[in-house]
Design a protein around this nucleic acid. Structure first.
Length: 272
DNA sequence: AATCGTTCCTGATAGC
DNA sequence: TGCTATCAGGAACGAT
């Protein structure tokens, strides 16, 4: 599933490959992902417009459209954005196709249909976007900032890391990885973390995200790049993934629990 | 205000 | 074999 490194990989490729592409036609095979406006107006507002660029905040991709609109795309669990020639056979679950004058398509494919799109003139109109917490790779995200976010909260640290209104872009994969690397149990109430643990966690969050971007993300579930290629960071993950039963550090048994409805792997011997 | 449980959806897999 | 039941999960939403 796409988290910050995966979404950033897609954003970079979109920026490079479809900036200044002009939309000739929008084909809607399934209207469900389009949250606003309604499908006919969505189509009308985009047809004939140029794409100016691609930004990202958290797990949202923002396509900047000519004349000031923004197309916010959230891939949720299984959404994909693929760029290919218009004559390529249409994939199963290709719900929305942006067809360009150049003969290329940008296709939104989404097996579980959880992904969303909003076309708005102001970003603040999308509530979840407007409520996003700070970007973990921005300079403003200092160890002190993380300490402030943790504050006196009793919430389990893993759930706090995954809360998009606290920090933007971290999901199940990178929450588990950064906690493992920082040797902190996902079950620890956030407020019990000592200053040195917060510092370490902050460092590991930034490092694992940067490394994962370098490898074009982790192909877990359906994630692929806009070229349809898998991200290679999957092989570098230390703790995430059901097939891991042995801790790569102490060789002890990895524990799988459910935390806030999510499968969570950790090593009880290494992570305190 | 913060947190918890439920819901959306398909395909893989287990069990009979 | 072929059917049905179960499960995974990000975040919106309603309830507490």
């Amino acid at each position: 599933m796409p988290e910050l490194p995966e979404v950033e990989t897609i954003r970079r490729e979109l920026e490079e490959k479809i900036s200044s592409e002009k939309i000739k036609e929008v084909i809607i095979n399934l209207a469900k992902p389009i949250k606003t406006p309604q499908a006919p107006e969505f189509k009308k507002k985009l047809t004939g417009k140029k794409i100016k660029g691609a930004k990202r905040h958290g797990k949202f991709i923002i396509l900047e459209i000519e004349e000031g609109d923004f197309l916010l795309i959230h891939l949720k669990l299984t959404g994909q954005l693929i760029i290919e020639k218009s004559e390529a056979p249409v994939e199963k679950h290709a719900h929305i196709i942006f067809r360009f004058n150049s003969g290329k398509d940008l296709r939104f494919i989404d097996l579980r249909r959880f992904g969303t799109m909003h076309l708005v003139d102001k970003l603040e109109k999308v509530k979840a976007y407007q409520e996003l917490g700070p970007e973990p790779l921005e300079p403003s995200f200092s160890p002190e900032k993380l300490k402030e976010i943790i504050g006196n909260r009793p919430t389990k640290i893993k759930q706090l890391l995954m809360d998009q209104t606290r920090i933007a872009g971290i999901g199940n994969i990178y929450a588990a990885e950064s906690l493992f690397r920082a040797r902190i149990s996902p079950l620890r109430p956030a407020k019990t973390l000592k200053d040195n643990e917060i510092k370490k966690l902050h460092q590991e969050i930034q490092q694992v995200l940067k490394e994962a971007i370098k490898y074009k993300g982790s192909s877990v579930d359906e994630y692929v790049t806009t070229e349809g290629k898998e991200g290679e960071y999957k092989d570098k993950l230390l703790i995430y993934g059901l097939d891991k039963t042995t801790c790569p550090v102490c060789k002890g048994k990895v524990k799988t629990i459910r935390l806030g409805g999510r499968g969570t792997n950790y090593c009880p011997r290494c992570q305190k």
